[in-house]
Amino acid sequence: MATLDSDDEITAATIGELEPYAVKVVIEDYNPGWPIWYSEEEAAIRAALGVLVLRIEHTGSTAVRGLAAKPVIDILLVVPDTADEDAYIPALEAAGYTLRIREPNWLQHRCLIRRTENGAPWSVNLHVFSPELGAVEIERILAFRDWLRTHDEDRVYYERIKRELGQHDWKFVQHYANAKSDVVEEILRRAQRG
Rank of each mutant, 00 (worst) to 15 (best):
M1R: 10
M1Y: 04
T3N: 09
D5R: 15
D7P: 04
D8H: 10
D8T: 05
T11D: 07
A12F: 05
A12T: 02
A12I: 03
T14D: 00
E19V: 14
Y21R: 05
V23D: 15
V23G: 10
K24Y: 14
K24Q: 15
V26F: 13
V26T: 15
Y30K: 11
Y30P: 03
P32W: 05
P32A: 14
W34N: 10
P35C: 09
I36L: 07
W37L: 10
E41G: 06
E42Q: 13
E42V: 00
A44D: 13
R46Q: 11
A47M: 08
L49K: 00
L49M: 04
G50N: 08
G50S: 07
R55F: 03
I56W: 11
T59F: 13
V64F: 00
L67V: 04
A68M: 03
A69D: 04
A69H: 02
V72R: 07
V72W: 01
D74E: 12
L77W: 02
T82H: 06
A83C: 03
Y88R: 08
I89E: 11
T98A: 13
E103C: 13
E103P: 13
P104C: 12
N105D: 11
W106P: 01
Q108I: 08
Q108C: 13
C111W: 01
R114I: 12
R114P: 00
R115N: 10
R115E: 12
N118Y: 09
A120I: 10
W122T: 09
V124W: 03
L126W: 01
H127A: 08
F129D: 00
S130R: 09
A135C: 06
I138C: 01
E139Q: 11
A143P: 09
E153V: 10
E153M: 11
R155D: 01
V156Y: 11
Y158K: 14
E159A: 13
R160F: 03
R163M: 10
Q167E: 13
H168D: 15
H168P: 03
H168V: 02
W170P: 08
W170E: 02
K171M: 14
Q174D: 14
Y176V: 05
A177R: 03
N178C: 02
A179Q: 06
S181M: 09
D182C: 05
D182V: 07
D182F: 09
V183I: 15
V183K: 01
V184L: 04
E185L: 15
E185N: 12
I187K: 10
L188M: 11
R189H: 11
R189P: 05
R190D: 08
